[in-house]
């Protein structure tokens, strides 16, 4: 059983959904990001999505674009990101880490080498935004063979005819992108989210995580009531940005305020107890 499966099984037993914060590796610098990462489990993160920066993030809105630019000047690279995971994993062997990013940096690192190094560092899953099922044969099978879950994205445009394509070979969980749009812009209605999660669950037994557009504890609670996980990215990254000085550097407020916001969001998710889950 993978670390992701264990975590979702444990949460199912507790009768609640997972809270999944997203932070960009090396935003705003390596040391600050690492301090935030280390503090996330205690602040209520059940799984962690760690962004791998790319110069051209075509599915991301302004908040995550800005985080990527900060990370780039903060020294982000695939190598540094994996080193950060390795150090995190030395202290925490339970909290799954999923790397999220775009294909080119992984491709240039080399798919085989990347999968090997990521598995050794303690990475549990991959979300590669611009690698649809039609193109992922050069990465996904190697990831699975190395014990890394390959998480696929489903969106409002993924109809019932296409869902089996997306879900074929998916593992870990399914990430439902709640809006047809980029990160950090609009929010979906609760009704739309319920409809979508129900639809996806007709096609898979994998847990369904919902992201895009969740900005507050109340929204996280509403999503957690119907999905298996709520992902918050842009709002968290924006909170981090608000604590930086005018030159974009971390301040004494950065780590505590980001973690406080994580606690707040996690509390929202934990409120949404669902009794015995389906």
């Amino acid at each position: 059983m993978s670390r992701i499966e264990r975590r979702f099984a444990a949460l199912r037993a507790e009768g609640r959904a997972a809270f999944v914060p997203f932070i960009m590796a090396a935003d705003p610098d390596l040391a600050t990001c690492e301090a935030i990462l280390a503090g996330l489990p205690a602040a209520g993160a059940d799984l962690i999505e760690l962004g791998v920066m790319f110069s051209d993030p075509m599915a991301d809105g302004p908040a995550i674009q800005a985080a990527g630019l900060r990370a780039r000047s903060g020294g982000a690279s695939v190598r540094h990101t994996l080193a950060m995971v390795r150090r995190f994993r030395a202290a925490d062997s339970d909290t799954p880490i999923v790397l999220m990013g775009y294909y080119n940096p992984l491709y240039i690192y080399g798919c085989a080498a990347f999968v090997k190094d990521a598995a050794a560092a303690g990475v549990d899953g991959l979300i590669v935004v611009d690698l649809p099922p039609e193109e992922d044969a050069e990465l996904a099978p190697f990831a699975r063979a190395a014990g890394i879950d390959f998480v696929r994205l489903a969106t409002p445009t993924t109809d019932d005819a296409r869902l089996p394509v997306v879900l074929g070979g998916a593992s870990g969980f399914v990430y439902y992108v709640a809006i047809a749009g980029i990160t950090g812009t609009r929010s979906a209605s609760s009704y739309a989210v319920i409809q979508a999660v129900t639809r996806i669950k007709r096609h898979t037994n994998l847990p369904v995580a919902v992201g895009f557009g969740i900005r507050t504890a109340a929204q996280a609670e509403a999503v957690a009531a119907v999905a298996d996980a709520a992902v918050v990215g842009s709002a968290l990254v924006q909170k981090l940005a608000e604590t930086l000085d005018s030159a974009g550097h971390a301040t004494a407020r950065t780590v505590p305020e980001v973690l406080a916001f994580v606690r707040d969001l996690a509390t929202g998710v934990q409120r949404a107890r669902r009794g015995k889950a389906a």
């Binding site: 075509m58 935004v129 649809p132 039609e134 193109e135 994205l153 969106t155 409002p156 445009t157 296409r162």
Partner: peptide, 20 residues
């Protein structure tokens, strides 16, 4: 049929765009 010229080309887009 999948848009490849040898190893080049293809369709590397986010899932939202794939059906489109």
């Amino acid at each position: 049929e999948r848009g490849h010229f040898g190893m080049f080309g293809g369709r590397f887009v986010a899932e939202t765009l794939m059906p489109l």
